[in-house]
Amino acid sequence: MHSAQKICLLLAMILAPSFAMAEPIATIKKLSGEVSIVRKNETHAATLGDRIHEQDSISTGNQGSIGILFDDDTRIAVGPNSKLSLADYSYDPRNHKGGLDLKVSEGTVSVIAGKVAQGNPEALSVATPASAITVSGNAFSIKVDNPTKEGNAQ
């Protein structure tokens, strides 16, 4: 094998996992007001119908809200003044196995579990600044206040 080929192979091996982690996993189905998506340190405005990738962060403005549908049929809705990150997502359509980890740093989020939660009640987990929750129900809503903001001072 030529050394150039070796380098290519090596690069492919190093880069492949990082590409795999940024796979599209969900679609924006509802959108209103100001909503931005942060992907690999770049911020852009959310567009209806666009795909959301694993590890994307979502933030909504004063009047912003967004609804997204994951490939396993899990649905989440995000209210105004919210920030969350889709830290981890996996889904195998053949056996419906996988899981979703949400990190909500502030705001309001509702979740309706999809196929990943059918066989595994621990497939959905939500982390907030205060706690990590493993969700066993089919649907839930949470509200996270940001303690560093004015009006929420300790």
Partner: peptide, 13 residues
């Protein structure tokens, strides 16, 4: 607090 959130929930597939 959840009025706006509920309106943003996508329809079930």
């Amino acid at each position: 607090d959840f009025d706006k959130v509920d309106k943003a929930m996508p329809a079930a597939p």
